[in-house]
Design a protein around this nucleic acid. Structure first.
Length: 890
RNA sequence: GGGCGUAUAGCUCAGUUGGUUAGAGCGCCACGUUGACAUCGUGGAGGUCACUGGUUCGAGUCCAGUUAUGCCCACCA
């Protein structure tokens, strides 16, 4: 331990940088974040959502990290065995792309130039070198993750878990292979699940193309946004009830540009009112057309290659991209006189959520997970409350999706990821096993070829809560740390990840993966838009942390992250919390400076006699209670608000100011109370602001004022002290404060300079109030800069006095002024203002009391309160009116 | 087309089960170097709680509708 700094050596401004750097290292070397699997304590477990291995810390991670860290740190202080499980996700497409790009940039090579094994090994190299930058960034945040347990979704044990999961689902019939229409990204060259498609509304054209009816003079005009697909048309469909075309159903039309005859069919799917009521059917390139084709036994003509270039089936358009082909087809239709008109048209188009390319509906062989059965227990777990969402409405969002969940396409045509554990022999038998097989399970053939595809990244992250604890082995960790306690995440992965973790855990472990799910708010840019890297509207939390300190950032994020609605980022907000940190720092400096009496630590007095001390302790214990409750409900914004207000307003603005004169007069109790409040406050603030609280706590420890500990993390969370609750003290001090405020207001409005010492204050008060005030005259004198306080019990005593009049509840304050004549106008203005306020209030209060229905039906307490106030107003009005009359007459 | 949110001070947001005069931070105005802090202190100004109607003794709060705005889901070419 370094030698204690003298207080004057502690800087006047809190400097976060070196404090933070020091504690990041120290906490880790102390091992306070490491969970002991053999401990007897109650486990408290959070599985941290694994960021992409390519990732860098963004505001979303920072918010989520803060929320989880608050819980982890508080639960350590509560005495739980806390495991906050860290790790990264291999992030199939994202990572493969980063490395492919780098490979091309540096070596002008594609992955095909290297071959699969070499390419995958390059990704592993990349991962070793750059992969875990986010780890260091979490440290910067102060995240108390159990870094020794860092996991990766493709490490050895995890890969075993993935194979077990696949084989298990396959053997139970939940996984099947099917030739189906899927979302295909022609740029990523892989299939995607429905959830990886983002629908974007865009402006397009609707082309009206005439198809000549064979054996008739007529023509059938169809409306389409994709004329380039017409080379793959196999029919034209109309609604069976559409009288316009009834006679033509069963006949044929010629597909322009293709010189092919196709039938006119009738299908319910066709809307009579849309376009012309005639729909061209292209089963290979449209989900609906595919369904219609199946119903009518139509052929499928695929005119596109995997990269969305037209193929041989497109005849003379082969080799063109879909965009070029569209232009050429439209021009050719125009030339042939088949284009009837073009309309502007707005519709939604599926884009790749990764690269933003327009997706193609594409017919291919893929692996799917059959969801209907798996969804049932996952629905029940949320319906019966075993799993609860916070805010609760997200549970409804989850259920809506889960109740109509569709089968999940899990195969991806990528190289980076968990290769699907299915081997096919030369005879075409499939072997599906966990360990790579030598021979076919059906025919002893040794010519086995593994399915080249890899699994959707989310297939492996769905196992996160238990695969990280050693599943499928029955490890001690799995027994102790599963199910986890809380999951905190962003709402955009409720379906992608949360839902899949729930059904996976229920299927593989027959247990829920977590009890509570916190869905944190999304942080928007200052204009209220979603932050986006590509638009440059993203905010780098690391820069903000550099500028204002991590604690200030965290304090804001705690509140923002658990807001019920989305929150705009504004630097000024962080700045105000930087100021708050500085306030805490300086209040602590003050306590250390003043509370010390020689080198002795303050001793707890036998009796806490001062009403002011009893007041702050009463408030403090309320804060302990309320903050603990708020955290238990995951309402961190409420907690930060209470802590901010208590620290700044109650403790600094009032208690410290009231303590100053008392310290001078040798009051011993105040020293201990100062220490006690600060000690408790530091514990309460620690989960939110770990660095500054740790630093100050150590400074207190060096002075022997608190027990010396390696880290504040090892100190117990405060408990409310019922004996400190003191309503009388709270009422008394409220009155003292109101009196001080009233006098200050009088001084300000009468323009009596702050420096000027007022010689006398005359107070008219009842017996109880008078006793309270008399006990605290020297305090009042210091706080208001009025030297002498004179108490009277009869108003007559002041009627002749030249003085300003103030009302503080039931107490009247008279400020005699020698130069009163100069201030008469200002005093009259003051009283007028007061009069107006009282009169309008009287009108409101009395008219309400005059309402019989109100008096009859409102609760007695409410009515009584109003009656009391009404009487009070009368008395106050009397004082103001009389005084005003006197001065206006003067 | 469905679903879920949101509209409160110049700005960003709080406002629990309906109950005196609707709060905070920032900004604004006035004053201030009293020995923790100017990243500060003291005092002050500023709001028809989006609109309309309803329930109620009483509505920012509950109900219905309207408008604006955001997000999610959905196969009308």
């Amino acid at each position: 331990m370094q030698p204690a700094q003298t207080v004057s050596e502690i800087p006047k401004q809190y400097e976060p940088k070196d404090v933070e750097a020091r504690w990041v290292d120290r906490w880790e070397s102390l091992g306070v974040f490491h969970a002991n699997v053999n401990s007897e304590r109650t486990p408290f477990v959070i599985a941290c959502p694994p960021p992409n291995v390519t990732g860098a810390l963004h505001l979303g991670h920072a918010v989520n990290g803060t929320i989880q860290d608050i819980l982890a740190r508080q639960h350590r202080m509560l005495g739980d065995e806390v495991l906050w499980q860290p790790g990264t996700d291999h992030a199939g497409i994202a990572t493969q792309f980063v490395v492919e790009k780098k490979l091309y940039r540096e070596e002008r090579k594609t992955r095909h130039d290297l071959g699969r094994d070499e390419f995958v090994s390059r990704i592993w190299d990349w991962k070793q070198t750059y992969g875990d930058t986010i780890l260091g960034q979490y440290r910067r945040l102060g995240a108390s993750l159990d870094y020794k347990r860092w996991r990766f979704t493709m490490d050895e044990g995890y890969s075993k878990a993935v194979r077990r999961a696949f084989v298990h689902l396959y053997e139970r019939g939940f996984i099947y292979r099917g030739n189906r229409m899927i979302n295909w990204c022609p740029s990523c060259l892989t299939s995607l699940s429905d959830l990886e498609v983002s629908q974007v509304v865009q402006d397009d054209k609707l082309y009206f193309v005439a198809y000549p009816v064979l054996g008739d003079e007529g023509e059938l005009v169809v409306a389409t946004v994709r004329p380039e697909t017409m080379l793959g048309d196999v029919a034209v469909a109309v609604n069976p009830g559409d009288t316009r075309y009834a006679g033509w159903v069963g006949r044929q039309v010629r597909v322009p540009l293709a010189d092919r005859a196709v039938p006119i069919i009738a299908d319910e799917h066709v809307e009579v009112d849309f376009g012309t009521g005639a729909l061209k059917i292209t089963p290979a390139h449209d989900m609906n057309d595919y369904e219609i084709g199946l119903r009518h036994g139509l052929p499928v003509i695929n005119t596109l290659s995997a990269s969305a270039v037209l193929n041989e089936a497109a005849g003379r358009y082969a080799g063109l991209t879909r965009e070029e082909a569209r232009r050429r087809v439209v021009a050719d239709l125009e030339n042939e006189g088949c284009l009837r008109k073009i309309e502007d048209y707005q519709h939604s188009v599926g884009h790749c959520s990764r690269c933003d390319s327009v997706l193609e509906p594409y017919l291919s062989d893929q692996w799917f997970v059959r969801m209907a059965e798996l969804a049932k227990p996952a629905i029940a777990a949320v319906e019966d409350g075993r799993i609860q969402f916070h805010p609760a409405r997200w549970g409804g969002v989850y259920l809506d999706w889960m109740r109509q969940v569709r089968d999940w396409n899990i195969s991806r045509q990528l190289w980076w990821g968990h290769q699907i554990p299915v081997w096919t022999c030369s005879a075409g038998h499939q072997t599906v096993v966990e360990e790579t097989p030598r021979t076919c399970a059906h025919c002893d053939s040794q010519e086995l070829v593994q399915d080249p595809d890899v699994l959707d990244t989310w297939f492996s992250s769905a196992l996160w809560t238990f695969a990280t604890q050693g599943w499928p082995e029955q490890t001690a960790e799995l027994k102790r740390f599963h199910p986890t306690s809380v999951l905190s995440t962003a709402r955009d992965i409720i379906y992608l990840w949360v839902a899949r973790m729930i059904f996976s855990s229920l299927e593989f472990l027959d247990d829920i993966p977590f009890k509570d799910v916190i869905i944190h708010a999304t942080i928007l840019d200052p204009e209220g838009r979603r932050m986006s890297k590509s638009k440059g509207t993203g905010v780098d939390p690391l820069l903000i942390m550099d500028k204002y300190g991590t604690d200030a950032c965290r304090f804001w994020m705690a509140g923002a992250g658990t807001s019920a609605q989305d929150v705009r980022f504004r630097e000024e907000k962080i700045e105000s919390y930087r100021n708050f940190a500085n306030k805490l720092w300086n209040a602590s400096r003050f306590v250390m400076m003043k509370a010390v009496n020689g080198t002795e630590a303050p001793q707890r007095p036998a009796v806490i006699s001062s009403v002011i001390d009893r007041w702050i302790l009463s408030r403090l214990t309320g804060v302990v209670h309320d903050v603990s409750e708020a955290i238990a409900r995951y309402e961190f914004g409420v907690a930060t608000q209470i802590l901010y207000e208590f620290t700044w307003n109650h403790f600094c603005d009032w208690y410290l100011e009231l303590a100053k004169p008392r310290l001078d007069s040798g009051d011993e109790g105040v020293r201990w109370v100062l220490k006690e409040v600060l000690d408790t406050l530091l514990r309460l603030l620690h989960p939110f602001m770990p660095f500054i609280t740790e630093e100050i706590y150590q400074l207190l420890g060096q002075r022997g004022w608190v027990s010396v500990v390696a880290s504040l993390q090892q100190v117990a969370w405060p408990e409310p002290q019922a004996v400190w609750r003191d309503g009388a003290a709270e009422r008394d001090v409220s009155l003292l404060i109101e009196i001080v405020r009233t006098v200050r207001n009088m001084r300000a409005e009468l323009r009596i300079e702050p420096a000027k010492l007022v010689t006398e204050m005359v107070v008219l008060a009842g017996a109880d109030e008078r006793q309270l005030l008399e006990e605290h005259v020297s305090l009042l004198a210091k706080m208001t800069r009025c030297e002498r306080w004179v108490f009277i019990s009869d108003e007559q005593a002041v009627t002749e006095l030249k003085c300003a009049t103030g009302l503080a509840g039931v107490v009247r304050l008279y400020l005699p002024l020698t130069q009163f004549g100069d201030l008469l106008d200002k005093e009259i203005a003051r009283l007028r203002k007061e009069l107006n306020a009282l009169e309008s209030e009287q009108l409101r209060v009395d008219s309400q009391l005059a309402n019989d229905a109100f008096v009859a039906r409102a609760p007695v307490a409410v009515v009584q309160k109003l009656r009391d106030r009404s009487l009070e107003i009368v008395r106050q009005l009397e004082v103001v009116q009389q005084t005003l009359a006197r001065w206006e007459g003067a």
